[in-house]
Structures are given as C-alpha cells and as structure tokens.
C-alpha cells in the first residue's frame, strides 16, 4: 500500500489501516468513499480536505451479506451494486428503487452508501429516507472499537461525529414488510428529487396496516419519519387514495425548504401524491 507521508491520498487495505491513517493526519483527514462530491469541489470552488483515506480496496467494506434475519451492506458498496445485489431481496424493494434511480448511472456506479450517508449537507439524498423506514442501524468504527447506532440517531448526530470515525456499514433487519420509494425529479430522471416518500408497511392477516414507517426526504434539510401519518395508517386497509388523503391532512408536520430548483411549498404540495404512488408501489411489491 502507498506510503502516506508525502501524498494526499492513502489507499487503505483494512479498516484498522484506514482508522490509523485518519488518526495520524488529524482533523485535516477525511475518508474517500466514492468521492463524487469531493472531486467536484474544485469546479464549485469548495475546499478539499488536506488528506484523504481511500476505502475502496477494503474487502470488508465492499461486501453485501444477506442472512436470513438481516442484511449487512458495507460502506463502500456503490448505489448500482446495492441495487443489483438486493434486486430480488426482501424487504428491499424501496431501497433498491432509491439506489437504482438516484442521480445518474455514472454517479450510481461511483457513489457509495457510506459516502452518501456521511454527506450531511445533501437534503435530496435517496438512501436516508429508504433506510429510515427499514429500521436500519449504522456501524461506526473508531480506533477505540465499533458501535452500532439506530439510523435516526445517526442522522441526528452525524455532523458531530468524532474526527477519525469511520462509517463501516449498514445493517437492515429482514422483516415481512412491503416497502416502496417514491421520488420526484423535475425531469424524467437525472436530477435530484425535490421530494421523496419512502415507506415500509407491515400488513396483518386481514390486509390492515399493523405497523407503518413513512419517511420523507428532500423536503427538509434532513430526511425524517412522518409519525403523525404513520399513526393514522395503522389499523386500516392499505389503499393508495386513502393514504393520499391522510397525508394531505398531516402536511403540517413538515416545513418545505426553498431551493433553486423548487420552492418549499411545492415540496409539501406533492407529498400526498407521492404517498399515493408509494403505497401503490408497495402494494404491487412482494411482502
């Protein structure tokens, strides 16, 4: 592996290697996992870190392990690999849609799960709402050891993580839920969605909703769950039009962010229709 001293990139071979390199270069060092935002920084006249630790040659981080009760996704799995490997795996329908339609094919082939989740200033990211619905956990490693964090906690605290912390993977419990991911780009594809509704629904034997997870992305600065709507869904049969009406009544839960591409009101306004589309897609997916 490369000698790190006189260069600004270290290719790590193992997680301990990477942690050591990050630690030795202090606050100026950052992981490089895909790099689609890091590499575009110069054209945007944004700063780059003084030193990067590349993670793409760490076998552990590039693995997708599918067990009976859980799925573990290494942090350096790209969006396109994630979509391909989980294509027929339940309950990943929504996550596969998220990973398989984000940005464009070139970016999906480079951008990684870990890079995506660590980019805290990316409101329109597709993976966070999808993972929020799946009760995912994030694995973090430091030189002191590893810990797991519920996904929601991770989103809330990711800006304040200790320097030198590495996101190593995401774990998803396999529950018998139906999932879907409805995203709204302004063109047919190729731009970031202005609003996202992701959901995971557990239906009882009679087809009524036993448990519902709904998450909204791109509307606010960070994706978050929609508990007001989730509560309303429970106990009723799952139906796209009913879900749309219920969503319309609970729009007050969010404050839409104004952006260059869309005003805040628009992001809210389209949520009921996205909820309807998501429920429609969930009903079509296998449970």
């Amino acid at each position: 592996m490369r000698a790190p001293d006189d260069e600004n990139l270290f290719i790590a071979g193992t997680v301990p290697d990477a942690l050591a390199a990050l630690a030795s270069h202090g606050v100026g060092a950052m992981p490089f996992a895909g790099g689609t935002w890091i590499m575009r920084a110069p054209i945007r006249r944004e700063p780059q870190a003084a030193f990067y630790v590349s993670l793409d040659r760490i076998p552990e981080l590039s693995a997708v392990d599918i067990a009976i009760d859980r799925i573990r996704i290494g942090a350096c799995v790209t969006h396109s690999r994630l979509a391909a490997q989980l294509a027929e795996v339940e309950p990943c329908h929504g996550l596969v849609t998220a990973a398989g339609s984000a940005a464009n094919p070139a970016i999906r082939g480079m951008a990684t799960v870990g890079g995506n989740l660590s980019t805290w200033d990316f409101p329109a990211a597709d993976l966070p709402p999808a993972l929020l619905c799946l009760d995912a956990e994030v694995e973090l490693a430091t030189t002191d050891g590893r810990q797991r964090l519920p996904f929601e906690r991770f989103l809330a605290t990711r800006r304040e993580l200790r320097p030198g912390t590495l996101l190593t993977g995401v774990t998803i419990p396999r529950r018998p839920v139906r999932t879907a991911h409805a995203r709204l780009p302004l063109r047919k594809a190729g731009d970031y969605p202005v609003a996202i509704v992701s959901l995971a629904i557990l239906l009882d034997r009679n087809g009524a909703v036993e448990d519902a997870s709904v998450a909204v992305g791109s509307v606010e600065s960070t994706a978050r769950r929609w508990p007001e709507l989730e509560r309303k869904l429970v106990g009723h049969p799952l139906d796209p039009e009913t879900a749309r009406v219920l969503a319309e009544a609970e729009l007050g839960a969010f404050t839409g962010r104004d952006g260059v591409e869309a005003p805040g009101w628009y992001r809210l306004q389209v949520l009921p229709a996205l909820m309807r589309r998501a429920v429609d897609a969930a009903l079509r997916s296998q449970s």
């Binding site: 260069e7 290719i11 490089f32 790099g35 689609t36 970016i107």
Partner: peptide, 19 residues
C-alpha cells in the same frame, strides 16, 4: 469524460488517479 475502468463506464472527472 466517460472512460472504462475494469470494463465499467466511469466519469473520469470524478476518479482520482491514486485509486
């Protein structure tokens, strides 16, 4: 700027040579 890296299309503007 697309090229192939190990047979896969890659946008070469986002790929640092060190990797």
């Amino acid at each position: 700027c697309t090229v192939h890296v190990d047979g896969q299309p890659v946008v070469s503007c986002l790929a640092p040579i060190g990797t």
